[in-house]
Design a protein around this nucleic acid. Structure first.
Lengths: 254, 254
DNA sequence: CGTGAGCTTGACTTGTTTCAACCAACGTGG
DNA sequence: CCACGTTGGTTGAAACAAGTCAAGCTCACG
């Protein structure tokens, strides 16, 4: 299988997103002092131009061989595995500032697909540079190990959700975790975040059918927990919604 | 929370297990040339004495703070998370030669428990030494990154199983993967492996109830796919069992 | 204006859980 | 050595959660 040729035809026109903060890899240095003083893992100036992919486009597919690892700075993407009979499981959502699952750095073949949900813009970081920086620079290693541990933590929590929680709980937890991640990055406006997911995305992420997701969301809406309008999501009653998600308010142990 | 004091009272009396091979961390060097020429990650001579824990004993619990990471060389253990209402999800089984999930190296607090299933013997590897070796020795880093990628791959596959596969498929895949791992380590006798798991372990690993696991296993037994007798498991009809597990025989893409 | 993607809703089916009873194996203390 | 409790496994009936199927709706887009 030949190495995947990533389209570099469409280069991101605009500059850095404003207000993006606390992101795993893309931090403010990358945007404001790019290439000058403190290179981010694998982000050499020569390759830091952005690539834009339209909504629904696959950025790469399972079984592709990659020599780059995408690093999102605009839009949402989904990392998923498709089974031969059409079933799909979304393993993670990539938000602005996220890097694709770093297992790619050590596998010579992707075991999952990465699909743009909205239009996305990303930087293709060279895996070879990435690995080199990792063994040379303790700071980069430290940064990378945090990302790695975080990915593993989220993968484990997904397994717990899918294995031992009901539909309401799973959907609520997904929404809460997405909102929390967006807020942390400064991508929320008050209690509201932009929310481009379709119900089938939620279904594939929670191991449910889209019909059932519709029923659960309708129930949440009628109960006054959330509001989904246009392409935005608002959590109206955080306390009650946390309770649905099995999150205790005070000092709860999950 | 104070650092966990691990019991070092009971030291493993016997020598290295015979025939254990292809294990992530504990390989033959550790046993046969221990400390002499080629130190394994974190396995300093001073700390390579073994610790024995009886069946059902917790080696550590979620929220414990650890300064060592256990590395099994005898027996089986389960890595699991318990929810406040009693639900449990087993995230992985540790077989002889496995190291505990390496997220422990970067977290200052365990997010899961490790419980002995059979009597186990393990080496407590110092996390500090582990980290130091990682940044110093490229070979150790390489070895470690393989383990890390493998853990992530298995975590992702667990999520796929729990999210998108039925009970039969999940149970069959668990048994098949366990047998494969044991065979790879040279711990099988023909088509038979020792199998100390209780049905509730299988239930907690597959997100089912032990009652349903009993029904599924009975069905497998009656169909002639497997035999569980004493504390051993034999896969009698590998082809049919693979089909149940959704594994295609020839060149299948899962 | 037609088309297709996405969402909602209701009726029905299926897979899994829950509950309960019972049995077998095993270790333990009287 | 036996009585007994504990742990683990089996089975069947009933309850329940989620899936499937189908129809109809809105909306965006050509």
């Amino acid at each position: 299988m030949a190495y995947l040729q990533l389209e570099r035809s469409s280069v991101a026109p605009e500059g850095p997103p404003s207000g993006l903060r606390d992101c795993p890899i893309i931090d403010m240095r990358l945007f404001h002092q790019r290439g000058a003083d403190d290179p981010i893992v694998g982000a050499e100036p020569s390759q830091s131009e952005g690539i834009v992919a339209p909504a629904r486009r696959f950025i790469f597919r399972q079984r592709d061989r990659l020599d780059i690892i995408p690093c999102l700075y605009r839009g949402w993407a989904a990392c998923s595995v498709a089974l031969s009979d059409g079933r799909r499981q979304i393993l993670s959502f990539l938000l602005p500032g996220d890097i694709a699952p770093t297992a790619l750095v050590f596998d010579n073949q992707a075991r999952f697909s990465l699909e743009a949900i909205t239009e996305v813009a990303y930087r293709p970081l060279r895996i070879a540079d990435f690995r080199a920086g990792l063994t040379k620079d303790p700071g980069q290693f430290e940064q990378f190990s945090k990302i790695w541990a975080d990915e593993k933590r989220r993968a484990d929590e997904l397994a717990i959700d899918l294995g031992r929680r009901g539909a309401d709980e799973r959907v609520a937890r997904l929404l809460i975790s997405l909102v929390a991640r967006l807020r942390q990055r400064g991508l929320s406006e008050g209690e509201t975040v932009t929310f481009p997911l379709r119900q089938h995305h939620i279904a594939d992420a929670t191991g449910l059918t889209s019909v059932h997701v519709s029923k659960v969301l309708t129930q949440f809406r009628r109960a006054g927990y959330i509001e989904i309008k246009g392409r935005t999501l608002t959590i109206l009653n955080q306390a009650a919604f946390n309770a649905i998600a099995g999150i205790r308010e005070f000092n709860g142990q999950r």
